[in-house]
Nucleic acid binder design. Structure first.
Lengths: 239, 239
DNA sequence: AATGGCAAAATCGTATACAAAAACTGTGCA
DNA sequence: TGCACAGTTTTTGTATACGATTTTGCCATT
């Protein structure tokens, strides 16, 4: 069962085929935080999971690597990426540059049907949050942004944004300190308001502060290595 | 012999290895217009050329596809990409959004050594133009822009820009109508001037109009299919 | 008990083999 | 002459095999 709308999927510049399907499935799992950053994705394991040979699994992993969701180390294999603090800053700075412009263009081009679609999107996000399905809620929250880019009808920027939003999901998995998700919901609603009035200037402004809010809501300080096996357990026992 | 500086190379998120080397070589050839858009890159051919199996050649082609330089069609193979007119517009609009900001940050961060490096870069570009080596000149002109991004020290934006600059090279191959390259050279020199004064505002402004100039210098109208093999040659004989 | 090294297991890198799809060619027919 | 079709050739898609590298576990030594 997949509750994620099709437009969540990134573009992997792979021809249609099983490798692309596996990309989508792994992407969804990563974006929903069902697979954590740092997790090993062995070729054999992926191949067996999806019933294909290592050749196809490898193709999928390399495609994910090009999207930034996965990191491949020579002779060691593929791992779900762990963005550094520096990369986290840069990703949100890039979004702060690009997304306000996208919001402006989307507001100018928005039709009633598209606005309705965005409303349903936000409703689904709200519903997932209500029932505590935070992984799905988070991934819907990301696809809200890419949906806006698609309405702006700028394929090049949409593709760029997709990669940034994907990486944002990893960043949130690593550095988010469960502040209220209410601010998220509020911003998205405010954007819908600006869109409904085709108010490009205000959409741009709201998007700008929304991204800045997301950025500042992160706790971008050094974090112990993901494996809490050693020092962390010891420190935890002490406290 | 390779006259292209190392920093030309895009990032392919492949681990070091032969596939990555092949990426670099193919990239250089495409950016220098030694391989034209639309040309078929058969796996066997690539493999034999570089002395590797199809497996490795395939990996390299898929990596190039993710960078946008190559397009893979299922069961048909890999071709050097032929950006559409729409994509051409979008690529330069995206550059007009991103690069002025990059120029601003680079101007603020520029050291004397980095400025000197850019001067040498422009000199090499000039020298290549002088001796009529337009492929090399063009690819140096592209790497001038990525070099600025590297000085701005923004890896995420640099990566994005690299892909845009690469695609710009394809766009120029398809749609450029040999206006004077003097404007290019003039803009680059003007940028160096702003950099030397650490004048962020002016660097931003010059870069902005430089990108707009490049965009408007293109002849973005429909063009006959790349293959002039048959009817075109006949038509030419007629005329 | 801790450390170092060696052997075994697991995993990746690459080549190759075979199946499937597409492209090409030549023939037959209208 | 033009078109359609079938067989052949070429090229890609996928699986598998084997060598190389890394990781793991064990045992001897200190």
């Amino acid at each position: 069962m997949n509750t994620i709308p099709a437009d969540l999927h990134g573009t992997y510049s792979l021809p249609p085929g099983r490798a692309l399907d596996i990309c989508y499935q792994l992407e969804a799992a990563i974006l929903q935080h069902r697979i954590r950053p740092g997790m090993k994705l062995a070729e054999d394991e992926v191949g067996e999971t999806f019933g294909v040979s290592r050749t196809v699994a490898r193709t999928a992993l390399q495609a994910l690597a090009h999207g930034g969701l996965v990191t491949i180390e020579r002779n060691r294999g593929a791992f779900v990426s762990r963005p550094t603090i520096r990369e986290a800053h840069e990703v949100f700075e890039a979004r702060a540059l690009i997304e306000p412009r996208i919001a402006r263009m989307a507001a100018a081009a928005m039709t009633a049907e598209q606005l309705d679609g965005l409303h349903r999107h936000v409703d689904a996000e709200h519903e997932a949050t209500r029932r505590g399905d935070m992984g799905v809620a988070l991934s819907l929250s990301g696809s809200f942004h890419t949906a806006i880019a698609e309405i702006a009808d700028q394929r090049v920027l949409t593709q760029i944004l997709r990669s940034l939003v994907s990486r944002s999901s990893l960043i949130i998995a690593l550095y988010w300190h469960r502040r209220d998700t209410a601010c998220e919901s509020h911003s998205h609603h405010a954007l819908l308001g600006a869109f409904s009035r085709n108010d490009a200037a205000q959409a741009e402004e709201i998007m700008k502060s929304h991204i800045v809010d997301l950025h500042s809501g992160l706790d971008l300080v050094d974090r112990p290595e993901e494996a809490p096996s050693l020092a962390d357990v010891f420190a935890a026992a002490k406290a």
